[in-house]
Design a protein around this nucleic acid. Structure first.
Lengths: 336, 336
DNA sequence: TTGAAAGCGCTAACAT
DNA sequence: ATGTTAGCGCTTTCAA
């Protein structure tokens, strides 16, 4: 069933059908009605490939996401999409598998579908000029920025929190309660990514308090999932290392840590304080409520959309936005 | 940058470039290499609309999901996609907003992109023949089936658990521990959907134990989110209603219930037992670990993919598959 | 091994 | 208000 079939059934030309379908004014009410009736009867739907091909300008923007299953990204995605739709654009969701290069995927997507721009939700912190060479549409990095890369500030846009400061704030929250032996739970110290930044913040805070980082308290999991975090904390406990608090670089890891502590007979916050970063919705319903440095998820999504739209419309150039976090005082910390 | 530009730069015809690009054998090694070099240099990517338009048969299958943010769906999606890719198909993710008609969206998607089939992840339980009229590709309902509809069994496929039995099993788990005053936490009793089925299972179990359903213990929230569940349980507690256990129709609602109980000074499982359905990964790390009727998420995803592939290849017709659940004995229940 | 040409389904001038 | 026609970028016969 093509537009030709509809035209034939209606006894009109394809262009008339096209006009009726696209709501052009110059179609008689009678013909328009007839076309619509036949369309309904035959369940005709225009072929989007043909339509996109002939329309030289699309209103699509690509949303390149590392794993839509990631709860944190999921909570950002909705407000972002809504904002884009409001602005008259069509979000095109594209999930990439771990190991895949988001820039290559994004560039290919943009060219292949003639997109107007891209938003990357989660990606690498160390892009170089050669890597973005193929990217000829504006793009925004959401929840990460080019901290370890070599791009000029006019070559990319980003919306993030200050990850290093967040690590520092989270650790400070524990220090201010008198904790001195604070373990840190992260992916890898030198991953040139979020772990590294938040770890640096942790080190900053300790150093500000005149405390040296104890390698025995640096728990690297090599991953971000709850299972790895859980077992890493079990190891820490099994080693008999002394500590009174844990700073986990994500809420999910923090919850896993709390469970591991619990199973070793340590209660949170009585025997150990735990603080996370993200402010996932679900962590407001846990026991104890997780103390967390909350990211402004809605704003992250909306601002990424806004910046991209402004660039597409030529109203502004690349820029990097840093949004503030809020410490949510939960029930997982107490004075040492 | 189009295939024409590449052809011009290489001094060959577009058909030669096309052949080189698509790995056809009848291209000289020299020309092929040159084409590939120019493609690399220019970052050329074929326009997918043009390609899809001319290729009369695609290998795409649509994955129509009600909210990718839904953790339960997210855990099913990955194995499903993997399975489809293994079978040589390309998953096309399509998210629909609440209120949107998944059948209409699916039918439009399939026609618009010439897809080979569809998998619906979450949808209505009451399709009628007229509603699937426009759907001319095979489709599989995943995690729900046509319990309240009027389709013949040869008109649709589905992969689910037995939701009514699951409600019964969950309730039975509480009954067998001696609980008699069991509250149920759900969306709506008569929503012709998952709530209704699991509620019926709840009623079955009570009836089997010679207990009448007490309307005061039926907590309808009108939604599936944690916030609604939390407040509904607070209401139940405020009303002073007597109960020793709660059956929540989803894990997320169960967690919210536990929190609400906790804030009213009731401990789980000491003062109240709680059981959920789903078996979300995160509920293994909560305190207490949630007792839940675990859905076989991986199998749900894989079987949905398998059934669809078989139908597409004409190796089998429509069928409905019911997978077994497992009771995960967590820490949120105890004898009354 | 390569090129010329047709055509996928649609939209948008342009003509009537 | 409607029809005719060109052409979007690509793949694929068919010829050479």
């Amino acid at each position: 069933m093509t537009i030709k079939d509809i035209a034939a059934r209606c006894g009109v030309s394809v262009s008339t059908v096209s006009r009726a379908l696209n709501g052009h004014p110059d179609v008689s009410a009678q013909v328009r009605e007839q076309v619509m009736r036949v369309v309904r009867e035959t369940h005709y739907v225009p072929n989007s490939s043909a339509r996109d091909l002939v329309r030289q300008d699309s209103d699509g923007v690509g949303l390149v996401v590392r794993g839509v299953g990631n709860q944190f990204f999921a909570e950002i995605l909705s407000p972002m999409e809504e904002r884009l739709i409001e602005a008259g654009f069509t979000p095109v969701l594209h999930q990439i598998r771990s190991g895949e290069d988001e820039l290559k995927a994004g560039a290919a997507l943009a060219k292949s579908k003639r997109l107007k721009g891209l938003i990357f939700l989660g990606g690498c912190f160390n892009y170089g000029p050669d890597q973005i060479e193929g990217l000829d549409v504006p793009f925004v990095c959401c929840t990460y920025t080019n901290s370890f890369g070599s791009l000029r500030r006019d070559q990319y846009s980003s919306v993030t929190i200050d990850d290093r400061q967040a690590g520092r704030d989270a650790t400070d929250a524990l220090l201010s309660l008198g904790h001195r032996r604070i373990a840190v739970l992260l992916d890898e110290v030198g991953d040139s990514s979020i772990s590294e930044l938040r770890y640096l913040g942790y080190a900053d805070a300790l150093s500000g308090a005149g405390i040296e980082v104890d390698p025995a308290l640096v728990c690297q999991t090599g991953a971000f999932d709850m299972d790895s975090a859980y077992w890493r904390v079990r190891e820490l406990l099994a080693a008999g290392t002394d500590f009174t608090a844990i700073f986990a670089i994500s809420d999910a890891m923090a919850l896993a840590a709390i469970r591991a502590l619990y199973e070793s007979g340590r209660r949170v916050p009585e025997d150990c304080s735990v603080v996370g970063i993200d402010g996932l919705t679900a962590t407001q319903y846990t026991i104890p409520i997780l103390t967390s440095l909350v990211q402004p998820k809605k704003e992250l999504g909306e601002q990424a959309a806004d910046i991209l739209v402004e660039m597409i419309q030529g109203r502004a150039g690349n820029r990097q936005v840093v949004l503030p976090t809020t410490l949510r005082r939960g029930e997982s910390v107490r004075a040492c």
